[in-house]
C-alpha cells in the first residue's frame, strides 16, 4: 500500500502574525515557516502505518514556492521515503491544490491520500474533500484513529457528540484531526539522512492545471482588542452592573 501525504508550508504556530498596515493580508515576509501541524500528524500516521507493515511507501508532496522543499525535508526526516515539490506561486487556493494533487495521484497511483484536515494559516478545511470529489473516492475526514483491516481503511471520525467509524474501500482520502497521534521529532541523524532522500521538482504549469485565483480577499482586520476590566467593590454592585450595564441577568 502506497500513501501520498500532501504537506503545506505555513507560518509557524508559535508566531503571532500581524495584519499588514494596508489591511490587504497578513504579514508573512521573514517569518519562521514550518509544516502545517495537521500535516505533521498525517505524515506521522502514514509513517506509523508503514512501520507496522500496513503500508509500503510514503511519499510527501508540497505545492508552493521553492522553500517548501524545507518542509518536504522535514517530512522525510520524520520518515517519508521520497517527496515531490510542485512549484507554483505562494499559497494557491484549495481547488487549485486539489487539482494538482489529482494530477499527482494519477501519476503516482497511491492507495491512500493522507492530508491534514486543514491548514492553520487559512483554516479552509476544503482540500481533502475537494480531492475526494475530483477523484470520486471515498473520504474519512477528521480522523482520530486509522486502521487498515483486510485492505480497507477503518477511520474513526470525530463528529458532534462522539465518534463515528467508517470503513472505506481503497483508494481513499483520509484527513487527520488533532487527536490522531503525537508526531515524532525530526531527529538530527534523520535530518542528515533526509538530505540524501530523493526530492523531485516539477512545475505546476507542466501538470496542465488551471491555477487561476477564484477568490478575492476583501479586507483583513485584527480582532478588536478586549477592553480593560474593572474591579467591583461588592456583590451587590456586581449584580447591579450585570443587570443594568451588561444586561445579562
Amino acid at each position: 500500500m502506497k500513501i501520498l501525504v500532501p504537506v503545506k508550508r505555513v507560518v509557524d504556530y508559535n508566531i503571532k502574525v500581524l495584519v499588514k498596515s494596508d489591511g490587504t493580508g497578513v504579514e508573512t515576509a521573514g517569518l519562521k515557516m514550518s509544516m502545517n501541524p495537521f500535516d505533521e500528524i498525517a505524515v506521522e500516521e502514514a509513517v506509523r502505518l508503514r512501520e507496522k507493515g500496513s503500508a509500503t511507501e510514503v511519499i510527501a508532496v508540497s505545492i508552493g514556492v521553492q522553500q517548501a522543499q524545507d518542509t518536504l525535508r522535514t517530512a522525510m526526516a520524520m520518515g517519508a521515503d521520497r517527496s515531490i515539490l510542485v512549484l507554483s506561486e505562494e499559497s494557491p487556493e484549495p481547488l487549485a491544490v486539489a487539482k494538482v494533487l489529482k494530477a499527482i495521484v494519477e501519476k503516482e497511483k497511491p492507495d491512500l491520500v493522507f492530508l491534514g484536515k486543514q491548514a492553520i494559516d487559512d483554516d479552509m478545511n476544503a482540500t481533502g474533500q475537494m480531492l475526494a470529489g475530483l477523484l470520486g473516492w471515498g473520504q474519512g475526514t477528521f480522523a482520530s484513529k486509522v486502521e487498515i483491516v483486510d485492505g480497507r481503511a477503518e477511520v474513526t471520525r470525530e463528529v458532534d457528540g462522539g465518534t463515528e467509524t467508517v470503513s472505506l474501500s481503497v483508494p481513499a482520502i483520509v484527513t487527520a484531526d488533532l487527536r490522531l497521534n503525537e508526531p515524532r521529532y525530526a531527529s538530527l541523524p534523520n535530518i542528515m539522512k533526509a538530505k540524501k532522500k530523493p526530492l523531485e521538482t516539477i512545475q505546476a504549469t507542466d501538470l496542465g492545471v488551471d491555477m487561476t485565483r477564484r477568490l478575492t480577499t476583501v479586507s483583513v482586520a485584527e480582532p478588536p482588542t478586549r477592553k480593560a476590566g474593572i474591579k467591583v467593590g461588592s456583590v451587590a454592585e456586581l449584580v447591579e452592573k450585570l443587570r443594568n450595564e451588561a444586561k445579562v441577568i
Binding site: E182, R184, Y185, S187, L188, P189
Partner: peptide
Amino acid sequence: ATGDMGITRDGEKGPNYQPGM
C-alpha cells in the same frame, strides 16, 4: 552533543524520546 528530545518534566523518557547526537 545535542540535547535529548522528549524528556518529560520529571526527567523520564517520554513517548517521543529521541536521544541527542
